[in-house]
């Protein structure tokens, strides 16, 4: 087709930014959390991150090669999935668990549904839940400061113990590799906000609705340190800023994003307060992922000139 008569469907104005750029921004934004995880948990965390990320990229490349598709492993989306999955694993995860999780995320959740842009739920979280159901013991046993099975702050709170809020903000606690430090996660999130990769609607409404839910039903009322501990504990920060905002599995309409955030906050609150385990972010996000087509249908904006009063 000649360059002068290139007829295509909208959008006609194209941004310079590519998928690859966005994925690299996300990777950069995850560096503080990853580095803090390595600093906090030592060399085993580095191994988990390396093995998981590498096997995710290799899985994507091998699958696309075998299926005679264009190999898109260099757009870094598999690397982001792998890194996010690694940050969701306990530092003592054995290598085969990392590889299995990566293969499940890339092969079953992402590629079998059509690859990037077609997956119905967040691949990293899908794999995390797969591993959590399959290897509950390993996924919930946390080693910290050479103390085996030290409880995460959330588990301790659920058991009625008190926790140090400052430690939770900084991240000097047990937990998965990337979730412990709220400060490191926020540093990455601010970078993404400044770059315009994510907007405040989803994480903002997620955190706001979660706080309201905790104040209403948490049984402690307006107890500031309890609310902050709930916010910084578990995967909430990592989930709200990096996984709920995944482009593929979140609504594209503005009102839809707010509705989606509210769903996430309420579900997380329900799972944490009334569920069997202390943590509920990953299930809340993948369940809300499944609601996204419905939310988008509900909040479809009216075209100009339609609707309104007669």
């Amino acid at each position: 087709m000649s360059g002068n008569f290139n007829i295509s469907s909208s959008p006609h104005i194209r941004a310079q930014i590519t998928t690859r750029d966005i994925m690299i921004y996300v990777l950069i934004a995850l560096i503080p959390a990853a580095c803090f995880g390595i600093f906090n948990f030592g060399i085993s965390a580095l191994t988990v991150i390396a093995v998981t990320t590498l096997s995710a990229v290799i899985t994507e490349a091998v699958y696309q090669k075998l299926m005679h598709k264009r190999v898109t492993a260099d757009d870094c989306s598999a690397a982001v999935t792998g890194l996010l999955l690694a940050l969701n694993l306990p530092p003592a995860a054995p290598w085969w668990m990392c590889v299995l999780g990566s293969i499940f995320a890339i092969l079953i959740v992402k590629q079998l549904f059509g690859g990037l842009g077609q997956n119905f739920m967040n691949p990293a979280l899908g794999a995390r839940c797969f591993l959590l159901i399959s290897f509950t013991g390993r996924m919930t046993t946390f080693v910290y400061n050479d103390v085996v099975t030290s409880p995460t702050p959330l588990a301790a709170m659920k058991a009625g113990e008190s926790v140090d809020v400052l430690d939770m903000l900084l991240g000097n606690t047990a937990g998965t590799i990337g979730e412990t430090s709220a400060v490191a996660i926020m540093a990455g999130a601010i970078f993404l906000l400044v770059k315009g990769v994510i907007d405040l609607r989803i994480p903002g409404t997620y955190i706001a609705s979660f706080v309201i839910f905790i104040i209403l039903f948490g049984g402690r009322g307006l107890d500031g340190s309890y609310v902050i501990a709930q916010l910084c504990g578990g995967g909430l920060m990592l989930g709200a800023w990096f996984m709920a905002t995944d482009y593929v599995t979140s609504p594209i309409t503005k009102n839809g994003k707010i509705l989606y955030g509210a769903c996430l906050g309420i579900l997380t609150g329900v799972f944490r307060l009334f569920g069997g385990s202390a943590e509920g972010v990953s299930y809340a996000i993948i369940i809300s992922n499944l609601l996204v087509p419905l939310i988008e249908k509900l909040t479809l904006p009216k075209p100009f000139g339609k609707g309104g009063e007669r």
Partner: peptide, 15 residues
């Protein structure tokens, strides 16, 4: 070998 428990639960049937 560590069994992948999810396969004897409901999701495993579908997989």
């Amino acid at each position: 070998y560590e069994p992948v428990t999810i396969f004897i639960l409901a999701p495993g049937a579908f997989l």
